[in-house]
Amino acid sequence: MEVIKIKGTDDTPSVILDKDNEIFEISGRSLPEDVTTFYEPILNWLDEYAENPNSKTVFAFKLVYFNTASSKLLLDILMKLEEMYENGNDILIKWYYPEDDEDMEEAGEEYSDIVDVPFEQVSYVL
C-alpha cells in the first residue's frame, strides 16, 4: 500500500502513514489554510487501509497545537479508527502531550470520551 509521508511546516503537521513499517503518526502543528484539502488524502488513505489492515494498529497523535477547524478533522480520523475497532480490529490510539500542556492533555481526554476505541494518554518532555 502507498506510503503517505508529509513533512511538517509551521502550519501543517508531519504525517506518516506506512502500513508495511507499522507507523501511523500525526505530529506538530495543525492550522492549515484549508483543513479539508489537507486532511482529505489522509482520510482516503484510512478508508483504503481499513479494507485490509494490519493485525494491530497503533495510531500516534503527537500534536503541540491544533486550531478548532482542525479539531473536527482529527475527530473524523478517530471515528474511522473507531469504526475499524468496532469491526473487530486491534486498534490503539496513543495521544502524546507535552507534560506541562494541560489543554492538550484535556483535548485527548475529550476525544477519548467521544470515540469508543482503546485510548492511551502519554506525556512527554518537549
Binding site: 484549508d34 483543513v35 479539508t36 478548532t68 477547524a69 479539531s71 473536527k72
Partner: peptide, 8 residues
C-alpha cells in the same frame, strides 16, 4: 470551513 467552535 468554519467549525463553529472558535468562540467556545
Amino acid at each position: 470551513g468554519g467549525a463553529g467552535l472558535g468562540f467556545i
